[in-house]
């Protein structure tokens, strides 16, 4: 489904991602975790073809990221958007069909696809509702529906549960757990509940990339998120793997 070989990336001088190697198999759902500034979002942008690798190779669905774009659905964080922008839920979901639109209005077929996508995230009854009237969790689900309207083979999500309160999060987890059965999912998250609900395994990104199988032990979590031990984690891994970046824990 996706693979990276010796992938490196830098914005300016220092490498943000260094010698990244991983392979995601068909039907596998993966959570990308790691400290802030570790390169998670950069990896996502590379996978979307929004950035070009400095070195190495990245394959999505057997193609270059740019070529794979039509088959990839992307779900950004809902909090990124202007809460006052005047637009309805349905109009947002219809953006998933933008590639089918030449000029004028969306076709009836496009509207049907968009409504089906809204039904899939159980928001069909709120289709006409302005985006600004929706709760944080509903907004995030609208964005998921928009990605589904692209009829994707792979769904990429960027911290879907960030800034959403716990009571609402449950509904979102249900939606994602159901989707996981139909479609490959790769999501960036800090949320352990989400990892448990969706991930088959975990990709830890902190300049280098390490792979962990689930469930994560408390020790591994500590290793990933506590600053001092993070370096130790890197050092040990490199040592045990002869400086290879991918490591298999447990």
């Amino acid at each position: 489904m996706a693979s990276a070989h010796d992938l490196c990336f830098r914005y300016q001088k220092p490498l943000v991602l260094e010698n990244v190697n991983f392979q995601i198999h068909d039907g596998e759902s993966l959570c990308v975790i790691g400290p802030n500034g570790g390169g998670k979002s950069t990896l996502l942008k590379l996978m979307l073809g929004l950035l070009e690798p400095t070195q190495g190779e990245l394959n999505i669905l057997g193609k270059a990221p740019l070529k794979a774009r039509p088959e990839v659905g992307y779900v950004p964080q809902a909090m990124r958007f202007d809460p006052l922008y005047p637009i309805s839920a349905l109009d947002i979901v219809l953006m998933g069909r933008l590639d089918q639109l030449k000029v004028g209005h969306y076709s009836r077929a496009c509207r049907e696809v968009a409504m089906t996508a809204l039904e899939e995230v159980s928001l069909a009854d709120l289709a006409k509702r302005p985006f600004s009237d929706l709760s944080g969790g509903q907004r995030q689900r609208v964005l998921i529906a928009r990605a589904l309207a692209c009829a994707p083979k792979l769904l990429l999500l960027d911290e879907p549960t960030a800034n959403i309160d716990l009571s609402i999060e449950e509904k979102l987890l249900d939606t994602l757990a159901q989707l996981k059965e139909k479609i490959a999912i790769l999501l960036v998250t800090h949320d352990l509940d989400l990892i448990a609900a969706v991930g088959d395994s975990v990709l830890c990104v902190n300049r280098r990339v390490h792979r962990h199988t689930l469930p994560l032990s408390g020790e591994v979590i500590k290793e990933i998120y506590s600053g001092a031990q993070r370096i130790e984690h890197d050092r040990q891994t490199r040592h045990s793997q002869g400086d290879h970046s991918a490591c298999q824990h447990d």
């Binding site: 202007d82 953006m95 998933g96 933008l98 692209c150």
Partner: peptide, 23 residues
């Protein structure tokens, strides 16, 4: 504006996503 209304709205709301959809 009449011809490109939906594309203009998409770009105003989410420039990045519109780009990902080939706009």
């Amino acid at each position: 504006v009449a011809l490109f209304y939906h594309k203009l709205v998409a770009v105003c709301f989410d420039e990045e996503f519109a780009r990902l959809r080939g706009i």
